[in-house]
């Protein structure tokens, strides 16, 4: 029976592929199909079918490594998992219909056929989904590391004055890291005033504001002053609308103003020098 299925699939490969692509275009989530060119879709699809067939011919390990390669590729291409599972189901339908049409499978051996087919497909399902999930998880954890590396350096700009520019969304995990960097930096550089620049923070909600207030509080405890700069109009609006109290923290709209104020706080100012000729 296994051989029968295999022979059929092998000899009707191109038909199955054509049928599969047309059905997939109909059924699959538009988004997935549209994100890539028709040529790319065909190419990837044929790779997918090849992969399914190779399960018959190759050893376990070779197949495994192929699946991993393929899964990584589709994750990169942004194919959702639903397309993959739908693809597997469509494939089994096409094969079953084809076999019935050719009367290779009929009432007399249908049970045997389903059983064998199931035995072929089930591990395949598992492997593909497992690999897909693994690849996805790895991508996510790599991105998380990349994001952490992006986290906020403290830059000493003048004696006693440092700036920490924040970029991107701030979640609890990142907030903790930022706080540690901030305080370690303040102590290391002996900063008296730290400016946290939130120009690059897209949204300031209650949570983010809470983290910023906490950071400012902690800075005060180690013995420095904290200033929040880069408050854009829309951020000022949301802060007031949400009823967030930033009274305890000094704030300004731009980094420039903040630096001027910080210099004033440390009893200095920037003056223009007349050039001597």
């Amino acid at each position: 029976m296994r051989k029968l299925i295999f022979d059929y699939v092998q000899t009707h490969k191109s038909e199955i592929l054509k049928e599969w692509i047309s059905q997939m275009k109909q059924d699959a989530d538009e988004r997935a199909v549209q994100t890539m060119s028709a040529q790319m879709f065909t190419k990837t699809s044929s790779e997918f079918i090849e992969l399914l067939i190779s399960n018959f011919t190759e050893t376990e390990e070779e197949f495994q490594s192929k699946v991993v390669g393929f899964a990584e590729k589709i994750v990169r291409l942004g194919w959702p998992l639903t397309i993959v599972t739908l693809g597997l189901r469509t494939f089994s339908h096409i094969v079953a219909e084809g076999l019935q049409r050719e009367e290779l499978v009929g009432q007399h051996n249908f049970i045997e056929y389903s059983f064998e087919f199931e035995r072929w497909m089930f591990p395949l399902y598992n492997t593909i989904i497992d690999t897909y999930a693994d690849t996805w998880e790895r991508t996510v954890s790599l991105q998380k590391i990349a994001l952490q590396e992006l986290s906020a350096p403290l830059i000493p700009v003048f004696e006693k004055i440092s700036v920490m520019p924040l970029v991107g969304t701030i979640d609890t995990e990142r907030a903790k890291l930022i706080m540690e960097n901030l305080l370690d930096g303040v102590v290391k550089h002996r900063s008296e005033v730290v400016l946290i620049d939130i120009t690059g923070v897209p949204v300031v909600d209650t949570m983010v504001a809470h983290h910023i207030i906490q950071a400012a509080d902690a800075v005060r405890l180690v013995g420095a002053k904290c200033m929040i700069v880069g408050i854009r109009p829309e951020i000022a609006q949301t802060i007031v609308t949400l009823g967030i109290n930033l009274d305890q923290v000094i704030t300004t709209s731009t980094l420039k103003k903040g630096i001027e104020e910080a210099l004033e706080m440390t009893e200095r100012k920037i003056i223009e020098v007349e050039e001597e000729r």
Partner: peptide, 15 residues
Amino acid sequence: VITGIQPAVAITLIE
């Protein structure tokens, strides 16, 4: 005036 509060201490106090 309190001086020399370590970063780790400041963070735990705030938390």
